[in-house]
């Protein structure tokens, strides 16, 4: 029983800590750049910077969400539940941290573009949000894990949990974190292109989203693994 409680705490620490550090790093980079670009008369630019910072904070919120669910869930955990909770926290933590890093990367380029041309804010925001998709996929997987073992939802806890399959699903989800960085790099180029010619928005957006397809295939694979394991 004590081990399960330790697993619960470990899950919370991982899901809150890892994406938290990623978000903090991204926010630091965005903050530094914002401060160097800020001018007293430009109140709108301050708000824009703030919104980019909030975007970088999102993966940390997803991690916090999973951590809170694990911590506040009532009753004591069975061993399998504890292990799945830790795996869920890894699934949300690694892609979340990578996504935060990538959001930071894109937001910095976006800030420079917005500083030059205010009208680019809305479009730049969409580019900056692209890597966040990977954090969201991590969150989806984590929520399905937790739902599968009855930590959330009204479903009953399955008598047998195939931990090995869940671990493999976690591994592949964690790997998808890399995709966030690739999306981020393409999105930075997209913003550069946007800054030169606003008319390229549509094409740049489509190109920037292409690497995300791989993360979606990973998500589909994970969903199939979970269906096969009786989680869905």
């Amino acid at each position: 029983m004590i081990e399960s409680e330790l697993l619960r705490i470990l899950a919370a620490v991982l899901s809150i800590g890892i994406p938290g550090v990623g978000s903090a790093y991204a926010m630091q980079r965005i903050g530094e750049l914002s401060e160097s670009l800020l001018e007293k008369e430009e109140k709108g630019f301050f708000t824009n910077s703030l919104i980019f910072s909030v975007l970088a904070e999102t993966p940390a919120i997803y991690g916090l969400l999973v951590g809170l669910i694990v911590l506040v869930s009532s009753g004591s955990f069975a061993e399998a539940q504890g292990i799945v909770a830790v795996l869920a926290s890894i699934a949300v933590a690694i892609p979340g941290a990578a996504a935060a890093y990538a959001i930071g990367l894109v937001s910095q380029a976006a800030l420079v573009a917005v500083k030059e041309n205010r009208r680019l804010f809305g479009k730049s925001l969409i580019f900056a949000a692209l890597p966040e998709a990977i954090a969201i996929y991590g969150l989806i997987v984590a929520l399905l894990f937790l739902n599968g073992v009855g930590i959330i939802g009204t479903g009953t806890t399955p008598s047998i949990v195939n931990v090995e399959k869940v671990a493999l699903a976690t591994l592949v989800t964690a790997l998808s974190g890399l995709v966030a960085i690739f999306i981020g790099r393409v999105a930075v180029s997209g913003i550069k292109s946007l800054a030169k010619d606003e008319g390229t928005f549509g094409q740049s957006l489509i190109i920037a989203v292409l690497p995300e397809s791989i993360a979606l295939y990973i998500l589909i694979t994970v969903l199939l693994i979970l269906t096969n394991s009786g989680f869905i």
Binding site: L65, I69, A133, I140, L143, L216
Partner: peptide, 21 residues
């Protein structure tokens, strides 16, 4: 066609996230 369809799953994740918070 497939990736755009699956991408809507973000509504689920963000919806649950908002509800839980």
């Amino acid at each position: 066609i497939l990736s755009h369809f699956i991408s809507y799953a973000r509504i689920f994740a963000i919806g649950i996230s908002h509800y839980t918070i």
